[in-house]
Amino acid sequence: MIAASDLPEVIPLFPLPGALLLPRARLPLHVFEPRYLAMFDDVLKTPQRLIGMIQPQDGEDEGLAAIGCAGRVTGFSETGDGRYMITLSGISRFRLGERVEGFAPYIRAKVAWEDFARDLGAPEQDAEFRREPFLRLLERYFEARDLSTDWASLREAEDERLINSLSMLLPFDVSDKQALLEAPGLPERREILAALMEFALHAGDEGSEILQ
């Protein structure tokens, strides 16, 4: 566990459209671009081993979202051709500050952690979560998108793991993923997630009517 006092002022950033990392969740990544291979090698030399996942805006190097989430490298394997398969474990969200100039081929920036102190705590609970209606909505969404899952595992998952895993895995667009990331807490994230699924289903129904 990383304490607030251990969080660095400057971290490397990995802008990746649609890739969402949340605190206490895990994100597998395939690293193959030379600049990010260099970033990964440098990260392994640091005590915290943190990488900041962030959404690019208007092109990868032109703009970045205001808020991202840092993950700690907790596992990796190297392929025969020099690529890495890594696992990031979400630690805390951050607010983006100014970029740090230097000779590194990847982006480094100052970040602020103060607004997200709750991220370093225990898993969140959602006292108003009505699981069965939510799972019925999820089932309709999966059927409409022709998706499959292990329903037994979903039903047994704790609130945070269920909501955060779905937020990371479901095929929403970049702005929707950012809204899920920026949700103040788990109840708000669950509400956004449900609204996104309802909207997708409604849009699909309208599309069917037009085709008819």
Rank of each mutant, 00 (worst) to 15 (best):
M85T: 02
L196D: 03
P171Y: 06
M1G: 14
A200M: 02
L96G: 05
L211T: 08
P133Y: 11
I51F: 05
I2V: 14
E156V: 03
D61N: 13
W151V: 06
Q57D: 13
P12Y: 11
A65R: 12
P123K: 01
G82Y: 00
P12V: 05
L27Q: 10
D173S: 01
A112T: 07
E60F: 01
A122F: 04
R108N: 13
I2T: 13
W113R: 11
F116R: 02
E101A: 09
Q57G: 10
A203D: 14
Q57F: 05
P56W: 06
M168K: 01
A65L: 09
A195K: 14
A65N: 10
A70H: 04
A127H: 07
I86W: 04
P8Y: 03
S153M: 13
L27M: 10
M85N: 15
L7Q: 04
L37E: 08
I210C: 01
T87S: 01
S92D: 10
V31D: 05
H30T: 00
M197W: 00
D126Q: 01
L137T: 04
A117D: 04
S167L: 01
M39G: 04
A117W: 02
R26E: 14
R130N: 12
F142P: 02
A104L: 07
E9T: 14
L196M: 11
M39C: 08
A183G: 03
A195W: 12
G18N: 05
A25D: 02
D6E: 15
G121H: 04
G63Y: 00
A38F: 03
L20S: 00
E158W: 08
I11F: 09
M39S: 00
I11A: 01
D173P: 01
G82N: 04
G18K: 08
R35W: 06
S5A: 15
L137D: 05
L64Q: 02
E206K: 02
